[in-house]
Design a protein around this nucleic acid. Sequence first.
DNA 1: CATACTAGATGAATTAAATTCATACTAAAT
DNA 2: ATTTAGTATGAATTTAATTCATCTAGTATG
Lengths: 290, 290
Amino acid sequence: MRKLPPLRALQVFETAARQQHFSKAAAELCITQSAVSHQVRVLEEYFGEQLFDRQGRKLQLTPKGQSLFIELERIFNELSDLNLKIRDTPNQQLCLAVYSSFAVKWLIPRLADFRRQYPSVKIRLEMITQDPDLSTSTADIFIAGKLNQRGYWQQLLHKERLIPVCSPSFYPKWRDINLSNFQQQALLIVDEGQLGLDWHKWSSAHQIPLNNEQQHIFSHIVMAIEAAIAGQGLALAPDFMVAGDISTGRLVAVNLPDVHTGFEFSFICKQRRLAEPAIAAFSSWLKSQA
Amino acid sequence: MRKLPPLRALQVFETAARQQHFSKAAAELCITQSAVSHQVRVLEEYFGEQLFDRQGRKLQLTPKGQSLFIELERIFNELSDLNLKIRDTPNQQLCLAVYSSFAVKWLIPRLADFRRQYPSVKIRLEMITQDPDLSTSTADIFIAGKLNQRGYWQQLLHKERLIPVCSPSFYPKWRDINLSNFQQQALLIVDEGQLGLDWHKWSSAHQIPLNNEQQHIFSHIVMAIEAAIAGQGLALAPDFMVAGDISTGRLVAVNLPDVHTGFEFSFICKQRRLAEPAIAAFSSWLKSQA
DNA sequence: CATACTAGATGAATTAAATTCATACTAAAT
DNA sequence: ATTTAGTATGAATTTAATTCATCTAGTATG
């Protein structure tokens, strides 16, 4: 809940300050000089400060009046630009560049909802497997690792946390799996995990050796998850990717420690494009999904 | 003359968008739900665009509504900060760092006018003889050569132009001085002219040799001008510095070419301090003097 | 399946804010 | 000293904002 100064009075004051003349301001606003005088007084009473020095026929801003004017001129310029910004309909098409795993297991299942809420925005989805080169990419929006680049807006979506999962059919007494019998289980390992997804990270984080006899290796986390669903072993998967499968009972979280990789999925786009209708819509929808 | 959207409607819309709820917005604004609905409609008619999607009891911003909201939230935050910015009275004392020649011959004579107009602002004047180190100086405002540094605001005050002048008593037929008899005249030369003030520059610009027999050398332009007033020879002086002496008849501009040194006097201060009352006042006064 | 409930929409009536009108005031210019 | 160009002011008026009473359409409930 915010407290704003009287807006009409600000507008009239800004005009008067710009014109340095109440009567000219009145002409610009198509009102009388009297109305200008009244509104300026309203503002002076609101701030409890003289804004103009009236020395006879010379009208002069006080230091505080000047200061206020400088801010207001900029702000009202922005307000008058809103007209254009809103009516121009730039690009109701959005090109998203998204990490493939995030796309498949998180974004795509939810995208239908976005399309329903904003049918006018057409989405084109581009998958990436490594941090994008912002300067050369043609995408409007990225969902990738955090990268601090000047002029870009980013918002944290998710901190990656890996949890061990398996199919309830893989090991009927899956609730009994624990550190002491862990090494008897088959492991579903992701190699070439540019996101730091794998059992080796888990192993060194918890100082548990990986002596498991059975180790199946996949090139992508999505395949490891599918293998887990098919009951082929224990996978180490980002929590958000398997939340759906867990709630439908296709996977279960086993009683083994999790691990934070430090990787963060972020929404990234050019700062100055943030208020474009399509981008604003997508950004707000993303926030509502978190 | 600018055209602004209906301000009250913007304010009500911003609250409604932030709350995602007309009734809550109404509560925040201490008005009824009906009033919110009316104002939102006013704005929608003004822009000719749907801003909210009303799907039954769910209220949802459209892409354009989102876009508008993002801009307005920022703008109204700034407006609500005005309160503090105006009431806080930071530093009604200003420290100016000014090139010595500009200070003596331009600023000081006019400073009385500034003091009369803004008696609440106390000025402390510091002279400099070379470009200031912005990062270490304690001055609030600089008047110096143009220097492009990020985060600093600058405004061009004057492009230096040198004109040859002398006292009317120095050479009674001063109107007859021209290029053919120039070398018979005594020259008042400024050495160590970090501003590029001197006859040598003039000489090479116009390809005129300086074979004058009498040459008096000074370490500062102000002294050369005083010598010219005393009738000791021809000085080459910045036009703005001698305008006063010329109008009172103490000096005359002789019929010889002028020269632009390329040096520019600029008003410089930290961008983010521009709206401080004292700085805003000085900046606006400077503009009025140009 | 009817019924109550929640949240917004709407049109006429009302209230509050902004503006005008008529006139007073003031410093500067003539 | 008088005119002039500008702002100030209080009461009257107009316009814009708000309320009130009622309506509508989804949602939830027993």
